[in-house]
Design a binder for these strands. Structure first.
Lengths: 193, 193
DNA sequence: TTTATTTATTAAACTAGTTTAATGTTTTGA
DNA sequence: TCAAAACATTAAACTAGTTTAATAAATAAA
């Protein structure tokens, strides 16, 4: 049940078997059907989750009803709204299953218990947050400096497996463009080949 | 010398006097002249810094020579390229003083020393990285969902003091638009009032 | 199996933001 | 204190990306 989670943790820090067990036992297993939500806008995010099966999208809907996808999460990825979770504030985000999915979730209370009783967990989340932040910083630079076309091409190269599981509507919402414009880009690329 | 730093740390976590002294002693004081660089593209970022005086901009120059400002840092803010610093990879960023400035810097080695000898420091940077990440995530959503005009207005409201110390060129580079377009926005707003 | 819904594509008109260039103003530094 | 450099504004032509709408194809649901 928690094999994938243990592997994931071990890739960030090293824990003794007892520590690992102790921490992983704090997680609960959840099954989420396609098109249902782990979190909706306005709710306070009370969990941090680790995806063991399936695929999620984490997105925002702006006042014009347009959807911006912050990130996707497949097997071996973590999901939460860190803003809402840490500040206990209403979330601006939706977290929705794109496929039938399974997640291991830890509550805020149990996470705080881990912070105080297993000092290395502090390091785990320090390291993970750093990596997430680096990824977002790179994406920010890309969004500011690159055209939609090269962002699309790089997305295809970086996540070839993921792409196959997504619609073009979802890819466009991640790239920050309309699906109509993505269609134009795709045509342009196809003609070139 | 380190009063501001101590206050800043105390706003995130609580440390005993000895811990606080021990940690702050790892920092070195640096004076940086206006228009000179704490970090240039291609260099590995070997420090994490805390600004005690002045103003910096952290930016990227894309292949067309256009500048994108990731963030500004004034007194009481931290600066580093967390990507280059943690991965010891060549930086994509420039960190440049906009005014004559002063910084307290800690080296990677000393920071790691602190992580292993002062467990609460792990928490300090976990908490700080989380906050930075939340801020960047909010900005990402704004950049994807709002017009340049409303991003400009919100920037003015959020950082009124900072604005007075920046040129419009710099503000435009932060907002992700040209200074020409920012001028148009400013005119439009002025007419409305 | 049939119908309804979602998805992808195309076209055409449109708009937010860019580019280039010129002009005046302010700041800087020697 | 004077010349050079950096800055802000304006105009006009341009382009990357949007909007709306229509059509065909694929998927899901009944």
């Amino acid at each position: 049940m928690t094999t994938l989670l243990k592997q994931n943790i071990a890739s960030h820090i090293s824990l003794s078997d007892t520590e690992m067990e102790g921490f992983c036992n704090l997680f609960q297993h959840k099954t989420i059907q396609k098109k249902s939500f782990l979190l909706r806008e306005g709710e306070v995010c009370k969990f941090e989750g680790f995806v063991t099966k399936g695929l999620f999208r984490v997105y925002h809907i702006d006042k014009n009803g347009l959807e911006q996808i912050l990130y996707f999460a497949i097997e071996n990825w973590w999901i939460t709204d860190i803003d809402s979770f840490t500040n206990e504030s209403p979330s601006q985000l939706f977290i929705e299953a794109i496929e039938d999915s399974e997640v291991l979730v830890i509550s805020k209370k149990d996470k705080e218990f881990a912070y105080s009783n297993l000092p290395k967990i502090e390091k785990l989340f320090r390291v993970m947050t750093q990596k997430t932040h680096v990824a977002l910083q790179r994406r920010m630079i890309d969004n500011l400096s690159k055209t939609a076309e090269s962002r699309y091409i790089e997305f295809l190269e970086k996540y070839p497996k993921l792409v196959q599981r997504l619609s073009n509507i979802q890819i466009a919402a991640y790239l920050g463009i309309t699906n109509v414009f993505l269609s134009n880009i795709r045509k342009k690329i196809a003609v070139r080949k």
